[in-house]
Amino acid sequence: MSAATALRVEDRSTSRPDAGLAISLRGLSKSFDGGAPVIRGLDLNVPAGQFVAVVGRSGCGKSTLLRLILGLEAPSAGRITISGDRSSKRIMFQEPRLLPWARVADNVAVGLGRETPRAERRARALGVLDEVGLAEKAGNWPATLSGGQRQRVALARALVSRPALLALDEPLGALDALTRIEMQEMIERIWQDQGFTAILVTHDVGEAVAMADRILVVEEGTIALDVDVDVPRPRRRGDPALAELEGRILERLLGHRA
């Protein structure tokens, strides 16, 4: 048994370097119905396995950027190059969006295609539920869970297919402060464990500096600021270096308004 465990750990560590997708955007533009462009001539390189946070004011185009990267929208101009398996991209929405008529384990199994055999779908769903600490809720209806638990089920659904890119569209915005910090730590831990590329769109600059390797400030459809967060992990909340960085980014976001 220990040999099998060792083998699996080794297997994971060898697969880690290429576990994520590398993203390259060149001159990307997007406008809707001939209106003013939401994204204008944006260039970006994200190396595989990086945790990128995208912050910006409402309507700056950050969610559109995420949808373009995921292929949910087609660009009006420019090119998106994604190295790796295109199908292994997953998104976590602001709302849990669980199917109310499917039990928790079945909701998680939605993340796996129908081509996966039923027994394997179930086993993998239970495995990832265990990872988010909800193994005992597998047979529950979503209506019986708390808001934080539902969002953890949504996280499990996003992770069950072992995606190479996880897009997070303000997934913690509706949670209370403590649950939010727990979720941040959980996402960070799983990201470190699995090595996927993560793109987090958020309003919360504090969340961005706590979780990300790199922060992009998007203003009027272009990248206004691109900073690396080189504070080592695990990061302590209230770390002065993080607070200083948060202050700088907030100043940039607020200063632009004046």
Partner: peptide
């Protein structure tokens, strides 16, 4: 809920699956 339908699409459900797993149970 259109958000559930979008979720189904993003998670790779085809029209048939979308109907049986999202639309019909939602309309029931």
């Amino acid at each position: 809920d259109p958000q559930l339908i979008e979720m189904g699409r993003v998670y790779g459900m085809n029209r048939r699956e979308l109907f049986w797993r999202v639309v019909l149970p939602g309309a029931l």
